[in-house]
């Protein structure tokens, strides 16, 4: 019984998000700021940016710098740490 309720909640939330993701059209005459027309950001980009700011994901994204040495160092250190931790337990 509880699994039905849990999945019902998930489906309802999914449908709400689906509805919110339909892009809205821009207004006809954009307002002026500082002498040039102000562009509206699409609602999706605003949503994703606020979400990532809340969750602090930029710090996690800094882990994958693109430099191979950092990748190898992280893999090797985590390998040794996990090996020691999993053997002790």
């Amino acid at each position: 019984m509880i699994q039905l309720i849990a999945y019902l909640i998930i489906i309802v939330l999914t449908i709400i998000f689906l509805i919110k993701m339909i892009p809205r059209k821009l207004k006809k005459s954009p307002p002026y700021t500082c002498g040039e027309p102000m562009k509206f950001e699409k609602p999706e980009t605003v949503f994703y940016r606020t979400l990532s700011n809340i969750l602090g994901l930029k710090k996690l994204q800094k882990l994958s710098t693109g430099n191979l040495n950092d990748y190898l160092l992280m893999i090797f250190i985590c390998f040794m740490l996990l090996l020691i931790v999993l053997v002790m337990v």
């Binding site: 994958s64 992280m74 893999i75 985590c78 390998f79 996990l82 090996l83 053997v87």
Partner: peptide
């Protein structure tokens, strides 16, 4: 033996990109 098997499993985990070892996969 436990150390050896954990080392074996972790070396396969590097290839499938689970949590600490996932950094190479998107590139």
């Amino acid at each position: 033996l436990k150390t050896i098997f954990i080392m074996l499993i972790l070396s396969f985990c590097v290839k499938i990109a689970v949590f600490p070892f996932y950094v190479w996969k998107p590139d």
